[in-house]
Amino acid sequence: MSRLGPVITLTAGAVLAVGLGVASITATPAADTPAVTGNNAAGNAGNTTGNTAGTNAPVAESTPEPSATPTFEESVPAAPRRADYAGRVKGNGGLIAISVRDGKAIGYFCDGRTEVWFKGDATGDELVLKGSGGAKVEAELGDGRATGRVSIGGRSWTFVAPVAKKPSGLYRASAIVRGARIRAGWIVLRDPQGGFTQVGTAFAGDEQVPVPRLDGDEPTGPVTVGGTTVYPEDVDGFIEEMR
């Protein structure tokens, strides 16, 4: 009995210690260690520390980049592909005509004594047409008319030229006779009260000659310039030569 007493005492102490250890593990669960079950226990045993750190590391929230502020470019109104204008030049007594075709424009000013032809691009609703001797037409297109200024020989005048409907508009005639060029230009403008106002000039070579009057209802009918019969054309018949 004296020999078995210490053995029993030690055995009982060992059992008690094991029991207390089990109780301690049960009462204090691992806060950061994920549960490992089944066949993955061995494979995951060595990775417990790494997985624990990955599980609890703070996740960086991605901050969306601010969207670029959209830029709005002011759109430039396009010029009409095809348009004709004709009107009076204020304070001058002359007429002006402007015709636009597919990105190009020509113009003609005439007061019966002086004539100037103009040409330029027509890509927007504002035109700048240039003529000989520094002459220039600046016009804005819109609301069914061309409004602007014509500058010739150091002087300038304003004008308003509504859309021209046939037979109103721009006409020209030309011919070569015995080596001399015959040419004439006209602007025809229908009057609101009826009838037509027209103005033009004619030349035989470098000499200015009387200009015949066109038939308002048939402005492309033949006329005589400097003793030569010529056939006026509307703008579509000669604009390609001018551009």
Rank of each mutant, 00 (worst) to 15 (best):
V235R: 13
L10E: 11
N92T: 03
R113T: 15
R145W: 02
G107H: 02
T69H: 10
S62P: 14
D215L: 05
K119D: 07
L214P: 01
K130C: 01
I182C: 12
R155Q: 11
N92D: 15
V199S: 12
F238G: 15
G153K: 01
G87A: 10
G93A: 04
A79Q: 04
T123Y: 10
D84W: 02
R183L: 09
S151N: 02
A161L: 06
G131I: 00
V211F: 06
A139G: 07
G185L: 07
E61Q: 15
T26E: 04
G54D: 11
G93K: 01
L4G: 08
A12K: 04
G142V: 13
V160L: 04
A146D: 03
A68S: 11
F159E: 00
E138R: 04
G226H: 13
E240T: 15
G87M: 07
G237R: 12
D234N: 15
L20T: 00
G133M: 11
L214F: 08
D102W: 06
D121I: 06
S24H: 10
P219T: 03
A135W: 14
T224Y: 13
P66D: 03
G91D: 09
R82H: 11
V59A: 15
V15L: 14
I98R: 00
T63F: 08
A86D: 07
I98L: 14
T37Q: 07
T48K: 07
P70A: 11
S24D: 05
A173Y: 09
Q198G: 10
A97Y: 08
G134F: 04
I25H: 07
I106R: 02
G134L: 10
T228I: 11
A27R: 07
K165M: 05
A173W: 12
T158N: 14
Q193Y: 03
R172N: 06
I239C: 06
P212R: 10
I98Y: 04
P64K: 00
G154A: 05
I187Q: 05
G87N: 05
D102R: 09
G144I: 12
I152R: 00
T26Y: 02
P6D: 03
K90T: 14
R243M: 13
D125L: 06
T71P: 13
E138S: 09
V177K: 14
Y108H: 13
G179N: 11
I182H: 08
Y231F: 15
L10C: 14
F196L: 09
G200R: 07
R101G: 00
P232A: 05
E126I: 08
T201I: 11
K90Q: 15
A135Q: 06
I187Y: 02
T201S: 10
F159Q: 00
I182D: 09
R3V: 13
E218L: 09
K166M: 05
G153H: 03
G107R: 04
P29T: 01
G194W: 08
A53H: 10
G144C: 12
L20W: 00
S24T: 04
T26N: 03
T197Q: 14
G200E: 07
F109I: 08
G185S: 12
S99P: 05
G46P: 04
L20N: 00
G205A: 13
V209Q: 07
R113M: 11
E65Q: 12
R190E: 12
G194D: 04
K90G: 10
V160C: 01
A17I: 03
I98D: 01
